Computed example of a mutant assay.
Amino acid sequence: MGLYIEAHIRADMDDLWTRTQTPSEHQRWDLRFTEIDYLPRAQDEPQRFRYATRVLPFVTVSGTGVAAGERERPDGTRTSALRFASPHPLSLLKEGSGYWRYVPEGDGVRFITGYDYQPRWGRFGRVADRLLFRPLMVWATAWSFDRLRLWLERGITPERALWNWIAELAFRVAVLVTAVTGLGLGPLARYTPPLYYLFPQLLLVAACMAVFKAHLSCVPSARRCVRRAPARARAPRLMRALETPR
């Protein structure tokens, strides 16, 4: 698959399955979706769903999908697969497919996703996807996985985790702006010799810490997830049986 994200979550398999397979729970931690609803279905049919994402305060794009899951496998792993499509003209994602894989490992579960999609808008869409949208989707997926991890491991709700992230981001921006602005005050430090030599170095250290310092343990971070697929990674067979929704 084109995009790959992996996180190790120290949690019970059933709890992780519930938080990811229940629409009302899923939409709380996944930054990519604002709303997810299951649609009525016959007992022997794959589960169809509707999703929506708010891209601007008054603009929401929506689409439909079909999903199937294997709750139990002989090796202890679980897998769910889906195909999705959006007819909305403002949605860059035309259609795509993906999977979630749950692998028991040590004191938790290795939670993996792989997915890919076809962009619309012709050549412009392909360029915008490669330069902007696809990296954004990788970051949003990894960030959401870590927010899910905080929920399961530490009881930090997705809503609280988002506010933690916003607060830390605001602090980092304030430090960075202060450091950059302070460079213009360098000449004032010549009247106090010790500061004259240390002032630029201190500002540089502050700016670097604002950009590169690891996030607090209570703040979701995409850096904590694996974002490069191993050579052995491949899509599950379950996905081949699903039709692309129209």
Rank of each mutant, 00 (worst) to 15 (best):
Y4P: 02
E6S: 10
A7H: 00
H8T: 00
W17R: 06
Q21R: 14
S24W: 00
Q27F: 01
Q27Y: 03
R28V: 02
R28C: 05
W29P: 02
W29E: 00
T34N: 13
T34I: 03
D37H: 14
P40K: 12
R41M: 08
A42S: 14
Q43K: 15
E45R: 15
Q47F: 06
R48S: 14
A52E: 13
A52Q: 13
F58P: 08
T60S: 15
S62D: 11
T64K: 14
A67T: 13
G69H: 07
E72D: 14
D75F: 06
G76W: 05
T77D: 06
T77Q: 09
T79I: 11
L82H: 09
A85G: 08
H88Y: 06
S97F: 13
G98M: 10
G98I: 09
W100E: 11
R101V: 00
R101S: 09
G108W: 08
P119S: 03
G122W: 05
R123S: 14
G125W: 05
G125C: 04
D129T: 14
R130P: 01
F133N: 10
F133P: 02
M137S: 14
W139T: 11
D146C: 07
R149Y: 01
L150F: 09
E153M: 06
I156T: 09
T157M: 08
R160A: 13
W165N: 11
I166V: 12
I166R: 12
R172E: 01
R172G: 03
V173D: 09
A174H: 05
A174Q: 00
L176N: 04
V177S: 11
T178I: 07
A179L: 05
L185H: 04
R190W: 11
Y191V: 05
Y191F: 10
Y197H: 10
A206L: 04
A206I: 01
C208L: 13
M209C: 06
M209A: 12
A214W: 07
V219E: 01
S221N: 04
R223D: 09
R224F: 06
C225N: 13
P230N: 04
P236C: 01
R237H: 10
R237I: 09
L238A: 02
R240A: 14
A241F: 05
L242W: 06
T244W: 02
T244A: 08
